[in-house]
Amino acid sequence: MIEDAEDLAEGVIAQLSRAGMVCDLASTIEAARDFRAVQDYDALVLDINLPDGSGLGLLREIRAGGDRTPVLMLTALASVDDRVTALDAGADDYLGKPFDQRELEARLRALLRREAERKSHDIELGPLSYTPSDRSAVLGGKRLDLTRREAALLDALVRHQGQFLSKTRLYNSLYGFDDADVGVNAIELYIARLRKKFAGSGVSISTRRGVGYRIGLDG
C-alpha cells in the first residue's frame, strides 16, 4: 500500500491482515521503489497525491517496465476525469475516498482472482500437482492440508523449481516488512513441515548451506 496518510493506512492494513492479506506500507514513491526492488507483490494499492510526486507517475513507470501487477488506485481524486486518466495509465481498478473497508477488500479479492485465473495452469512435479489460483496442492491423488504460510512457501518453491531460493527470499514471501517479531529462521519450521508432508512421495526439499532451499524429485 502506497499511502502517506499513515493513520488511515495502518487501519486498512490491520483489517487486511485480519482478512488474511499481508500488506506492507510505503509512505512515498521512493519507499515504494525500494520495497518493490526486493519483494514481489500480488497487488498494489496506490494513492495519487504523495509527498514526492504523483502516484500516476509511479503507475506509468511500473507499466513501462512491463510489470502487470494489479493496481488499485485509492484516492480522494474521484472525478470521472481522474478515474479515466488513471485507468488509461494502466490502473486495474479505482476506489475514491472516503471508502468502505469491505468494498476495498472485495475489490482486492476480485483483482487477485483475475490475476490467479490468468496464471491458473497447474504446476506438476512428479506426484505433486500445484494450483496457483487457490494455492492448493494434491500429492499422489490426495489433497494436502496446508496452512496459509505453508501454501505461500510451497508457492514460492514450485514456481522456481530447480532453483535455490534464499531464506530471506522465502521469508519475504511469507511475511510483511513490519513482522519484525518473526525472525527469518521461522522459514526452517515451515520447510520442516512441508518435508514431513512430502515424506515417502519422491518430492523433496534440499538445502544448500549458505544458498537456500530447492524443491525437486529424489534422485
Rank of each mutant, 00 (worst) to 15 (best):
G183C: 07
P98T: 08
L174M: 13
Y190M: 05
H160A: 11
A110E: 04
L194R: 00
P127H: 08
N172Y: 10
L157W: 02
D181R: 11
R159V: 05
G176P: 02
K119A: 11
I187M: 05
G126C: 08
L144K: 02
V158I: 15
R149P: 00
A192P: 08
N172E: 12
G183Y: 10
D178W: 04
G162A: 10
E117N: 14
N185I: 10
L154K: 00
S129D: 07
A137N: 01
V184N: 05
K119H: 15
D155P: 02
G96K: 01
D145A: 12
R159W: 06
Y130S: 01
S120T: 15
A152V: 05
D145V: 12
T168M: 14
D181K: 12
G140T: 08
V158Q: 02
E188Y: 14
L153C: 05
R148F: 08
L153N: 00
R113A: 09
V158D: 02
S173N: 13
R113F: 09
A156D: 05
V184E: 08
T147C: 07
K142V: 15
D122R: 12
T147D: 10
L146S: 05
H160N: 14
E105H: 13
N185S: 14
D155H: 15
R114H: 14
F164Y: 15
R118Y: 11
V184D: 04
H121L: 14
V182P: 01
Q101T: 14
R193G: 05
Y190V: 06
E117T: 10
S136F: 04
L144I: 10
Q101V: 15
R169D: 04
D134T: 13
L189S: 11
R118S: 12
G162D: 05
A151W: 00
G183F: 07
S136D: 07
K167L: 12
A106C: 12
D134K: 09
V138N: 04
E117V: 12
A106K: 11
A151R: 02
R193P: 03
N172I: 05
R143I: 04
Y175H: 07
E124C: 07
Q101D: 14
K119F: 13
A192V: 10
N185C: 09
